[in-house]
């Protein structure tokens, strides 16, 4: 089943067209890495999927239900707030800058949405949180505050927090870009574990090794378009498009 279907989406910031007709399908259990130079529109694409940005043209469906669809004049129409709300809850998002709630402990960060949004009782929510903390290797940090954690630990809490809502797909927006190089490994390991459990994931990343090793499919974006996509082997070993070649030439050196 398609978890996510994106057709021909266009996004402009003022007059700058940052997405110029991007289409994409994500199947259940698939791990897709999106790579490309800065300003290529990869992060904007993720933000459009979860409606942190709105699109002008195109359609986005989650589990075959539309968040936004095109009318007969090719203009995008968003579904009702209520429908969108339910569909967005199927997506978990991890941000580059973690965005943990600084005034809440690790545990409170994770149970916040299960309690307030899903209305779980506290005991159940804490159970879920404790399991997730074990999973991301931070069971001993349960009562700590974000300011007491390293960047890598913060990002692992952010992943646990997103997972606590039991999403059908996880969106990662450059999850290791704000980290010191020696801390990226622990975050990538958690993501790798998730991939092995067949979590559906869409990962915008600069970590080529991760993309090559973990992704089922790699998408190369440049200048607001998908230039080339394929298996990691296709993209990294036999890129066909000159722009892909030039980009990989620079980052892989």
């Amino acid at each position: 089943m398609n978890i996510l279907t994106v057709k021909n989406i266009h996004k402009k910031f003022n007059n700058l067209e940052v997405l110029k007709g991007v289409s994409l399908e994500v199947n259940k259990g698939e791990v897709i890495a999106i790579i490309g130079p800065s300003g290529s529109g990869k992060s904007t694409l993720l933000r459009c999927l979860i409606r942190l940005e709105t699109i002008e043209k195109g359609s986005i469906e989650i589990e075959e239900k539309p968040i936004v669809f095109e009318d007969s004049n090719e203009k995008s129409i968003y579904s009702s707030e209520k429908d969108i709300r339910n569909l967005r809850l199927k997506m978990g998002m991890v941000f580059q800058n973690f965005n943990l709630f600084p005034h809440k402990s690790v545990l409170e960060n994770i149970i916040e949405a299960p309690l307030t949004v899903n209305g779980l009782d506290r005991l159940k929510a804490e159970q879920i949180a404790d399991n997730l903390l074990v999973k991301v290797g931070l069971a001993d940090k349960r009562e700590n505050y974000p300011c007491e954690l390293s960047g890598g630990q913060k990002q692992r809490v952010a992943i646990a927090r997103a997972l606590a809502m039991n999403p059908a797909i996880m969106l990662f927006d450059e999850p290791t870009s704000a980290l010191d190089p020696e801390l990226t490994g622990e975050v990538l390991q958690v993501m790798k574990d998730l991939a092995e459990e067949h979590m559906t994931m869409l990962v915008v990343t600069h970590e080529m090794a991760f993309a090559r090793e973990v992704a089922d499919k790699v998408i190369f974006m440049d200048n607001g378009e998908i230039v080339e996509q394929g298996t990691p082997k296709d993209i990294f070993s036999n890129p066909t498009h000159p722009r892909t070649k030039s980009f990989l030439g620079q980052v892989l050196k």
């Binding site: 979860i50 709300r85 978990g92 949405a113 949004v117 809502m165």
Partner: peptide
């Protein structure tokens, strides 16, 4: 920070 709102928003608050 704007990220606090975005994060709360995507969590469904």
């Amino acid at each position: 920070d704007k990220g606090q709102y975005e994060c709360a928003d995507v969590l469904g608050l």
